[in-house]
């Protein structure tokens, strides 16, 4: 009897294991730039770098939620309108010719961000502004902006604390809105933002430890400000070499910016994550690779005949007309 119990116990464990190890079915990305004003150009370049990479690796625009707090590409101060570059040599136009920003300007608020993650959006919110993820979704969350110990500033006027962030993710987990999360943050004291996470299946990486500043990479003299942050610059450099078929792992991505180049220490938190990052393909979070099964047995679908005839029978000619383009002043005057 005991033996049977143990057997059942083991069986259930293995079922749970296989469930937790099951592959994800879809990919989502939430990319947030929280800084406004021209001198924060680099944060927009950061977030667009990641946007470019995930889009290139196959996540469609409908599954990328891009939040940008200010307009840099068409800013009057931008000497090259309609572009945002990742370096002064203008190697990569990270803004590109095909970009869809879902939340922009004043819409980038803590409230909207938390509502987006937890799915508590007001009725009538368009699909492009919703995170319609499910229990099979791998979600990449990327944040950049100005942070401190335990908070991240939004638009220089409000901030989200690490506790609020952790609670939002827990709510996501409880609502089965993700399978795994890769949380990536490029701010000062970035590690403080993920310290309070307590929900499972989260892999977190931050550009700096608590007490450290995260540094920017270089200045573009024609733009007049720093153009990109170090951590994201090297992350983009790495991601540019990745293609949807490549076998690079998350473990490699976590080592993308050693202290010698980043100056700050990149913080990683793996304890909530079930898998070994070295065995996780980078495309699990940055791409959208789906196993496709081709069905050979075709089913015949008969075309639905619309009731057009009866409509035409009921059709009665009406007399339509254009009205005067402007109100008749003579009738008003009299």
């Amino acid at each position: 009897m005991h033996l049977l119990n143990v057997y059942f116990f083991l069986f259930s464990i293995s079922v749970v294991q296989s469930f937790s190890n099951k592959n994800h079915t879809n990919n989502w990305a939430v990319l947030v730039d929280t800084s406004r004003f021209w001198f924060n150009y680099r944060h927009v370049a950061n977030v667009l770098s990641i946007y470019r990479s995930v889009k290139r690796l196959g996540i469609p625009d409908s599954q990328i939620i891009l939040m940008i707090a200010d307009d840099m590409a068409c800013n009057p101060r931008n000497p090259r309108p309609g572009t945002v570059f990742n370096n002064a040599d203008q190697h990569i136009n990270v803004y590109g010719d095909d970009v869809e920003v879902d939340y922009r300007g004043y819409e980038v608020t803590v409230e909207n961000f938390v509502r987006l993650l937890t799915g508590r959006l007001p009725p009538g919110t368009p699909r492009s502004k919703q995170l319609l993820s499910d229990e099979g979704s791998n979600v990449l969350i990327y944040l950049t902006g100005h942070g401190g110990d335990g908070f991240l500033k939004f638009q220089d006027s409000e901030e989200i604390t690490s506790q609020e962030m952790a609670d939002a993710l827990e709510q996501m987990w409880q609502k089965q809105r993700y399978n795994e999360i890769f949380f990536m943050i490029d701010t000062c004291q970035a590690a403080s933002m993920y310290e309070r996470f307590y929900s499972p299946n989260i892999l977190a990486v931050g550009s700096s430890l608590v007490g450290e500043d995260s540094l920017s990479h270089h200045v573009d003299s024609s733009i007049g400000v720093y153009i990109i942050d170090r951590y994201t610059y090297y992350a983009l450099e790495f991601l540019e070499k990745v293609n949807p078929q490549s076998d690079k792992s998350m473990g490699e991505f976590l080592k993308v910016c050693p202290k010698s180049v980043c100056i700050s220490t990149v913080g990683v938190r793996k304890d909530l994550f079930n898998r070994n990052p070295d065995n996780v393909p980078i495309t699990d979070f940055f791409g959208s690779i789906r196993p496709v099964e081709v069905l050979c047995d075709l089913s015949n679908v008969t075309l639905l005949q619309s009731k057009q005839l009866s409509q035409e029978e009921a059709f009665k000619p009406k007399k339509y007309r254009y009205i005067d383009p402007i109100v008749n002043f003579n009738t008003i005057k009299s």
């Binding site: 920003v101 922009r104 004043y106 819409e107 919110t125 368009p126 699909r127």
Partner: peptide
């Protein structure tokens, strides 16, 4: 206004 904001990527929801 909400739908158009999604359709045209502008903050028309204001």
């Amino acid at each position: 206004a909400n739908s158009l904001s999604g359709l045209l990527c502008a903050s028309l929801n204001f």
